[in-house]
Design a protein around this nucleic acid. Structure first.
Length: 572
DNA sequence: GCCGTTTTCGGCCCGACTGTTTTCAGTCG
């Protein structure tokens, strides 16, 4: 059973949690968390690196000690240090640490003085009024703990970007209407365009007498007010989403925007660079001594540490600072670069619109072409096309194209990859199409090797043009099927196949790390909306967001090309 | 536990808010 990066990352995070409760050195704890993050962000398998005898200490945040621990985990499947820690610290305390307002010190105290070892014990102790009697605790703290225990959902939840937008936009409009308010902007992972957000960070600039904080906590969608100060406030919305408000004066806008956009790792890196030059960087500006020397814009902040502006989507401390320093930042793709869409459905299978309607909607968006990719017959629930129906659709598209102006329908199909790696329709009909996108819709539970080989075999068929939603994941509801993306990307490179970045907001498949990996390998991408209605063609922007997070440029994406150039690219 | 264009030892980002305290520890982002 191969060990995945995320397995090791999880164990490192668990060690960090347990060490925290033990009261270990904070920097040692951070080292484990940093290492966990490095492993999660890594596009290739660290187990593979161990197998190849690669030097793990080359990875950021991994030194001699952690490299050794990774090797032990990969080679033996065991992590003795974690086992030992679990003997010393009850595991249930990790859940207790997850309660907002309870940090390591308080958890320790609750454990030592009240004998609490898990959430159940904590609930009992709080209900019996024993928590408030501890020194440093009080009635209010106890009430907060009980409230938190009652209202918290099941574990950690992140909100999908589209849902977050639905909450953020009206709130921004509401705040912008407040007296004295100048700018209102959503920062945080929302601005970095992550596929999901943990909370919303809203930054406001306003006059000193603006009632914006009061207006914020009075917002009708607020369920709980966690804190409310002069420059900061935190609330929980009725759907459980946390929103943080930060207020700064205009002179600090850029510094605050940079700070609250993050990521934390990116900020720490930039601050350290500032420190090396005798500068202090905080949310109010860049300071030499007590004198603020920058802060009005983000560009100013970066300039002070000798860097060009870095796009928010890149700010994950995944090499963007080095790239900026050496002038190697990618010129990220933009929505305007897109010339067409290569994944769309019609009424013929499970879409809602006709060929003409889809063509008109694509033209409205300024595109030059749209590929019609209805399902093939294996997907019965979606009324997939057999050979005869596809042949009819080919004729129909030819006829419609004769009437259309300024937009071209491309003949295509989303053909199923069968369990044995064959395609669901004969080559004879597939060859009549302009391009073919190929997809896995069944047998998700094959072993990693079998799944990988199934797809690679399909890629060997010259009819294979684009791999649709390559890992099959649905954000928050279905894990990716087991597949070795390193091998898939390498095979795509060798065969000239294209990988799709599916832009459906619950798919966004490839993820950002895989986009970068494909790009680094020189494999071309297609950003496809997978639209089942004309309106879903607007999902293109989610795909662009994800691509930008993957360092993707317009040149890396086939559907930024003119129709003529696209035809050349899809011919293998 | 990591890391190094002054360093292989001694640093490690920085400020706001809450609750319980009488000047601040703990927590959070």
């Amino acid at each position: 059973m191969p060990i995945h990066n995320s397995d090791i990352a999880e164990q490192f995070d668990e060690v960090a949690d347990l060490l925290e409760i033990e009261g270990a050195n904070a920097f040692r704890i951070r080292a484990y968390r940093n290492a966990a993050r490095t492993l999660r962000d890594l596009a290739h398998s660290v187990a593979g690196m161990v197998r190849d005898d690669a030097d793990l200490t080359e990875l950021p945040g991994i030194g001699k000690d952690l490299a050794g621990k990774i090797e032990t985990i990969v080679e033996t499947g065991k992590f003795p240090q974690l086992e030992d820690l679990k003997k010393d610290v009850p595991e249930g305390l990790v859940d207790v640490l997850g309660i907002a307002g309870l940090g390591p010190k308080r958890v320790q105290k609750i454990h030592e003085e009240l004998g609490v070892t898990d959430l159940e014990g904590l609930t009992k102790a709080a209900k019996e009024g024993r928590v408030r009697k501890l020194s440093g605790f009080g009635k209010k703290t106890e009430d907060n703990i009980l409230h938190e225990l009652e209202t918290r959902g099941s574990g950690e939840t992140r909100t999908q970007r589209r849902e977050a937008e639905g909450r953020a936009e009206p709130l921004v409009d509401y705040l912008a209407g407040t007296k004295g308010v100048d700018k209102v902007v959503v920062a945080g992972s929302y601005r970095r365009r992550k596929e999901t957000v943990g909370d919303l960070d809203i930054l406001v600039t306003c006059t000193s007498d603006s009632p914006v904080v009061k207006r914020f906590v009075d917002y009708e969608d607020v369920r709980d007010v966690i804190s409310k100060g002069e420059t900061r406030s935190t609330v929980i919305l009725k759907n459980g989403l946390q929103v943080d408000l930060r207020v700064v004066e205009s002179a600090s806008y850029g510094a605050a925007l940079h700070y609250f956009t993050g990521s934390k790792a990116h900020n720490i890196h930039v601050r350290r660079m500032g420190q090396d030059q005798g500068l202090k960087i905080n949310e109010y500006g860049v300071f030499r001594g007590d004198k603020r020397i920058a802060g009005k814009t983000e560009e100013e902040v970066y300039a002070q540490v000798g860097l060009p502006y870095i796009e928010p989507e890149l700010r994950e401390d995944r090499g963007e600072i080095e790239a900026a320093r050496t002038g190697k930042l990618p010129e990220l793709i933009e929505l305007d670069d897109i010339r067409g869409n290569l994944h769309s459905h019609t009424k013929a299978s499970d879409g809602a619109n006709t060929l003409r309607e889809m063509a008109a909607a694509a033209k409205e968006r300024g595109w030059a072409y749209i590929a019609i990719t209805d399902h093939s017959k294996a997907v019965r629930v979606a009324n997939g096309l057999d050979e005869d129906r596809l042949a009819k659709q080919i004729d129909e598209i030819d006829a419609v194209n004769d009437e259309l102006e300024g937009i071209t329908l491309l003949k295509s199909i989303e053909v199923d990859i069968l369990e044995d790696g064959g395609l669901d329709l004969p080559d004879s009909i597939l060859k009549r199409l302009d391009l073919r996108i190929c997809a896995v819709h069944s047998h998700f539970r094959l072993s990693r090797d079998k799944q990988t080989e199934r797809v690679m075999q399909a890629m060997d068929n010259p009819c294979f043009t684009i791999m649709a939603h390559p890992t099959g994941r649905l954000i928050g509801t279905r894990e990716a099927y087991a597949i070795d993306m390193e091998r898939i990307i390498e095979h795509a490179r060798q065969t000239g196949c294209i990988l799709e970045l599916n832009a459906q907001p619950e798919r966004l498949d490839l993820n950002d790390a895989h986009c970068k990996m494909a790009r680094d390998a020189g494999v071309k991408l297609s950003i496809g909306t997978d639209a089942h209605t004309t309106g879903q063609l607007d999902f293109m922007r989610y795909g662009i967001d994800q691509a930008r997070r993957g360092w993707v440029t317009a040149d890396d994406v086939v559907n930024t090309r003119s129709l003529k150039d696209l035809r050349k690219l899809v011919a293998r």
